[in-house]
Computed example of a mutant assay.
Amino acid sequence: LSLVPTQLRDLLGDAAGRDALRSLSAVLVGGAATDRQLVDAALAAGIALHLSYGMSETCGGCVYDGRPLRGVELSLGERPDAASDRGRIWIAGPMVMSGYLDGDPGVTQLNGTRWLATSDLGHLHHGRLGVSGRVDDVIITGGLKVAADQVRAAVLSAPMVAQAAVVALPHPRWGQVVSAVVVPTDAWTQDSPAALRDLVGELLGRQLAPRVVVVTDHLPTLASGKLDRLAVRNRAEQVRRDGGAWTSD
């Protein structure tokens, strides 16, 4: 069975769903960033979980549990020949598309190899690929580049947060500010926004901690189950405009 993280979370929350997942020889999850907590919960429930990475341009998943399939090449950095251990993810191999319908080749030719420049940032850890976030999800606040997914992982480590998204909101002084949109647990109190900023500050550094916190009862998703980033950002901006968001300044 192949799922996106939202579907996996919903099934884990249902007894019949958990039983169905346990009966399968393999459960693939991909299509969006998968929280470490969600992975741990699935494994603890006895599910044969495998993380897949790929996209329409690679005909679906081509990297499983951080390892590329046979014939798949990976490279990280500003260019496919950068030989870096982190940066933009480049993919080459027979599964890479021929090109886009409008004539844009969508690939870079280098020494006879066709490389696809993905929109994702990655890193190598003991030879395995980890996806750090999207290139367009880098928040530039006060000249500092902040990876939204890194902050999101820290936000999700808080016991009073059930789900979270991290987006950039415009700010007259900082240009953009790191903003957390959270679905709270029962442990959430009126002091939780400040405590959340303190926690992220301790984990990542104060400059990466959210300056805006918006509480919501759910995170909007697309029909595929993936997070609707535009809808989340619009909702956060509207709540801040209406005075319902917690802000640190």
Score class of each variant (00 low, 15 high):
residue 234 N to A: 15
residue 193 P to T: 08
residue 246 W to C: 13
residue 205 G to S: 06
residue 201 G to T: 01
residue 239 V to F: 00
residue 70 R to E: 15
residue 87 G to H: 12
residue 229 R to T: 11
residue 228 D to S: 14
residue 171 H to S: 14
residue 152 R to P: 10
residue 100 Y to W: 13
residue 9 R to A: 14
residue 56 S to K: 10
residue 118 T to Y: 02
residue 175 G to R: 07
residue 185 T to W: 02
residue 201 G to C: 03
residue 125 H to L: 05
residue 175 G to V: 10
residue 156 L to R: 03
residue 189 T to D: 05
residue 31 G to L: 10
residue 38 L to T: 14
residue 177 V to G: 06
residue 29 V to E: 11
residue 145 K to L: 09
residue 226 K to H: 06
residue 41 A to H: 03
residue 183 V to Y: 07
residue 7 Q to C: 04
residue 166 V to S: 12
residue 191 D to N: 11
residue 178 V to Y: 01
residue 55 M to C: 14
residue 176 Q to M: 15
residue 232 V to Y: 04
residue 17 G to D: 07
residue 148 A to K: 09
residue 81 D to L: 08
residue 31 G to T: 05
residue 213 V to S: 12
residue 182 V to C: 04
residue 182 V to T: 09
residue 27 V to K: 04
residue 169 L to Y: 08
residue 50 H to K: 14
residue 195 A to V: 01
residue 249 D to Y: 02
residue 84 S to R: 13
residue 151 V to N: 07
residue 83 A to N: 11
residue 124 L to A: 11
residue 68 P to I: 06
residue 149 D to I: 07
residue 44 A to E: 13
residue 171 H to V: 09
residue 6 T to G: 09
residue 41 A to C: 01
residue 39 V to K: 05
residue 19 D to S: 14
residue 5 P to T: 04
residue 81 D to F: 04
residue 89 I to K: 05
residue 221 T to H: 15
residue 151 V to K: 09
residue 53 Y to G: 04
residue 209 A to C: 14
residue 32 A to I: 00
residue 25 S to Q: 06
residue 33 A to S: 13
residue 241 R to Y: 12
residue 181 V to E: 06
residue 203 L to V: 13
residue 49 L to H: 10
residue 168 A to C: 12
residue 213 V to H: 15
residue 62 C to P: 06
residue 63 V to G: 08
residue 136 D to G: 03
residue 176 Q to A: 15
residue 205 G to M: 09
residue 62 C to L: 12
residue 11 L to R: 09
residue 122 G to L: 00
residue 90 W to Y: 11
residue 133 G to A: 02
residue 9 R to Y: 02
residue 155 V to T: 09
residue 137 D to M: 01
residue 238 Q to V: 09
residue 186 D to K: 01
residue 117 A to Y: 06
residue 28 L to I: 09
residue 234 N to S: 13
residue 222 L to I: 03
residue 79 R to M: 05
residue 233 R to D: 00
residue 74 L to W: 03
residue 176 Q to K: 11
residue 40 D to I: 00
residue 71 G to V: 04
residue 49 L to E: 07
residue 185 T to V: 03
residue 130 G to R: 13
residue 174 W to N: 10
residue 66 G to A: 08
residue 183 V to A: 09
residue 12 L to S: 12
residue 230 L to P: 00
residue 214 V to G: 04
residue 163 Q to P: 00
residue 200 V to M: 01
